[in-house]
Design a protein around this nucleic acid. Structure first.
Lengths: 134, 134
DNA sequence: TCAATAATAATAATAATTACTATAATTGAT
DNA sequence: ATCAATTATAGTAATTATTATTATTATTGA
């Protein structure tokens, strides 16, 4: 972990994640970073995204449909995936609440609870206004 | 949805899921069902697991490491994945609490919240007791 | 400037899942 | 029970998502 060298590609990926609210997949990150680094490899994107996630500079979000998504905003918060369009939105909940859930769960579990992720399913505002589109 | 025919393979998969606490992957289900149906195909297992999930007879659990897992116990409950051994355990929380979280989230979201899944990360009892060996 | 070492691009390989198709099983009506 | 309609299956191929390999390049600290 200490033997980590700077790389412009990783810096660009981190920068991109910190400015988007889109929760992009590795492939989407790849397509964007490619504008600045036309020769960047998809493998490099995967490796750096996982590095950032391991270092706590990004969150990896697993959903049942499609590949993993990444979020550069690491303050404790939740996500909502739209059942209609698949979009992933942020959902800020009281941080106190999030900590409470960990404690509550720890009391019900025979081991130790460290953290948790919550993924809500729902219908986003955009899809809701387009009425019953499933 | 109405045009669904019975199949012994699907019945066996449902039966198996209802009797295990292991949260098996599709491949694990495949290996077990194969004992009764030696010619069953992995594709059949995938299709039926997804069918069961769509019908509400099973829960599909996505974790960041490895393939999706399935749970035949569909009462509202959470899961814990062990950071050490990867095992997925059930975590029963007050059902009132789980409903409350949906309402709480709905108030903070511009669309509609339908449900949620929570995945805790921690160390299971077994790994905790082996901690001095690592 | 230079050597040590980590990061990269390009590619190959693997893992997880879905799609395709000819045959078999289920169902509902005769 | 038989039969036609239709869904499900097994076997296989294809696709998608991700990780591994390797020769070259970039970064770092002396």
């Amino acid at each position: 972990m200490a033997n980590l060298k700077y790389s412009r590609q990783r810096a660009a990926i981190k920068e991109y994640l910190s400015h988007t609210l889109e929760h992009p997949t590795a492939d989407t990150v790849y397509l964007h970073i490619k504008e600045e680094f036309p020769n960047i490899s998809l493998g490099t994107v995967y490796r750096n995204l996982n590095l950032l996630a391991d270092m706590g500079d990004a969150i990896k979000i697993s959903t049942p449909d499609g590949g993993d998504r990444f979020d550069g905003h690491v303050n404790p918060h939740y996500h909502v995936v739209c059942r209609s369009c698949g979009k992933v939105s942020d959902l800020e909940l009281d941080e106190q609440h999030i900590q409470e859930v960990n404690k509550l769960a720890d009391r019900c579990f025979e081991g130790t609870i460290l953290s948790h992720t919550t993924l809500f399913y729902g219908i986003c505002r955009e899809c809701e206004s387009k009425k019953w589109k499933n």
